[in-house]
């Protein structure tokens, strides 16, 4: 982007200052620790790549990375699978602007509640004697309560719920930009509702799916509170490792893990951008 004139600089200045002072500088300061040595519970100010070497050769770090990626992938897939039909219904079935506004507020409601409160809410719902298990037991669907807490399931359910709006809104906005006569043209050329969706609507809204997906993926990858409270220590993901290392004053390890997290996020964004750029040619 080319910034023209001092006025544009002035407009950008607050954001640039905030980003620099609250994000870039602290991140840099923290990441420098990755190149220090950690020995006998103390950080030694001598340059070394040992922490990186240790991270890259330790099987446990790969376990954490794969758990993180798996969690983010499952949550993203679920959010998109649930979110697309919701966005589609919102786009096609809800005609009045008022109803749309109300539904949009309802969808964003979860984001207005503190993550801690929301997570405790899920604790109540998903517990062995919680609402979900009690209902399923009463209906006779299950005979034993299923474990939905302190494992992957609980984290996935809660994260999908909270990330749903981030999946829905990019898809919804792309649906709104779609020329309605494209669907009519497909219909006119003999396609029924189903064929029109698969051949025209879905391919042309993939950019929305991709941007919704990448938002969900990076947010799920960096989620901390939910895996912490609902994972019960069984869901070891990168943000938890960063937190634990930092608390244990092992800043070099925390920094290296942070770099891994950052790299994975950037990689995901980059890969999706690459795919999106090629989307219009996809037949």
């Amino acid at each position: 982007m080319r910034v023209r004139g001092w006025f544009a600089v002035l407009l950008l200045a607050p954001v640039l200052l905030l980003t620099a002072s609250l994000y870039v500088v602290p991140l840099g300061v923290y990441l420098v620790n990755g190149f220090y040595r950690f020995k006998d519970g103390r950080i030694l100010r001598e340059w070394t790549l040992d922490t990186y070497a240790a991270f890259l050769t330790d099987a446990f770090s790969y376990k954490i990375v794969s758990t993180s990626l798996l969690l983010a992938a499952i949550v993203t897939a679920l959010a998109l699978l649930v979110g697309y039909p919701l966005a589609y219904a919102l786009h096609t079935r809800v005609r009045s602007a008022r109803a749309r506004a109300v539904l949009a507020v309802l969808l964003f409601c979860p984001l207005m509640i503190s993550v801690v409160v929301r997570t405790y809410g899920w604790l109540i719902l998903l517990a062995n004697k919680g609402l979900v298990n009690t209902t399923l037991l009463r209906l006779g669907v299950i005979e034993q309560p299923i474990r939905l807490l302190f494992n992957m399931q609980g984290v996935v359910i809660s994260l999908t719920h909270i990330l749903l709006p981030f999946a829905i809104f990019p898809i919804y906005s792309v649906l709104g930009k779609l020329d309605p006569s494209l669907k009519e043209a497909a219909h006119d050329l003999g396609a029924g509702a189903w064929a029109t969706f698969w051949k025209v609507t879905l391919p042309l809204t993939l950019p929305g799916v991709a941007s919704g997906g990448v938002i969900c993926f990076t947010l799920a990858l960096s989620a901390f509170v939910t895996p912490q409270l609902l994972g019960g220590g069984r869901v070891q993901v990168l943000p938890l490792t960063v937190y634990n290392s930092t608390v244990e004053i092992n800043w070099p390890e925390g920094a290296v893990t942070s770099v891994a997290l950052l790299a994975l996020s950037i990689l995901a964004v980059w890969a999706v951008n690459r795919v999106v750029r090629r989307l219009p040619t996809v037949a």
């Binding site: 050329l189 003999g190 042309l204």
Partner: peptide, 29 residues
């Protein structure tokens, strides 16, 4: 519905499928 009438339409905004080639657009029906 339109897909069951012996008519075809040329739309004002053309409504060509941007994700298809010229050939695939024409082959759609």
């Amino acid at each position: 519905p339109p897909n069951r009438r012996e008519t075809n339409m040329v739309f004002q905004r053309l409504a060509l499928f941007p994700h298809y080639s010229v050939f695939d657009n024409v082959a759609f029906g």
